[in-house]
Amino acid sequence: MNVIITKGIEKTYNPKTIPVHALQGVDLTIKKGEFTAIVGPSGSGKTTLLNIIGGLDRPTSGYIEVGGKDISKLSDNQLIDFRRENIGFVFQAYNLIPVLTAKENIEFIMLLQGIPKAQRDKRTLELLHAVGLDDKINKRPIELSGGQQQRVAVARALASKPAFILADEPTANLDSLSTVNLLDIMANLNMQEHITFVFSTHDQRVIDRARRVVTLEDGVISSDVYVDQ
């Protein structure tokens, strides 16, 4: 099953002044259960592509289908609802709401979804356990290390039971131990729970863990390979 389909995606920033052609025709299909790294040098268009797939930005032209739906037709509010129900996001850093504890951060998205308390509590504990932070349940982000914060972010991204998780350079701000740790958790979730991950990186250690590597260069896909782990 295809969770993401893009055809001929183009994105031009500042079309009227100094146009920047960030994406110049990207065709990409992601299947359920894949563990895909989008790689490429800085400025190659990774963030732009993930933003468009995640419904955070709209392409200049091209076709995009997420979870079987043409998201280009959605209004801004519909797009917000769509993101909440279908996509988990992990950003490079400062993902969490500073005034909420680890548990509350995870719970927050389920609250927005209107899930009853008993169910929220159960799922929050399961997710904290899955990312190995059972003992940090009542800690605020500031009391957690960068790696722990990213793990809570992954747990939060999973909370809404999304079709897939998008992570833009999730390890860029982490030391190598935390990087390995986070990758282990993501890989585990992928293997055992069949969670679909699409993440961007330019870190070779992260690329080595991917099972599919899509390389972007100057806004086009220059290679797309499946790797056996």
Partner: peptide
């Protein structure tokens, strides 16, 4: 602004 960006990204409606 950054925090509002995160909240809207993960699916909090602007009205809320």
């Amino acid at each position: 602004a950054y925090e509002f960006g995160i909240l809207v990204s993960i699916g909090m409606r602007k009205g809320k």
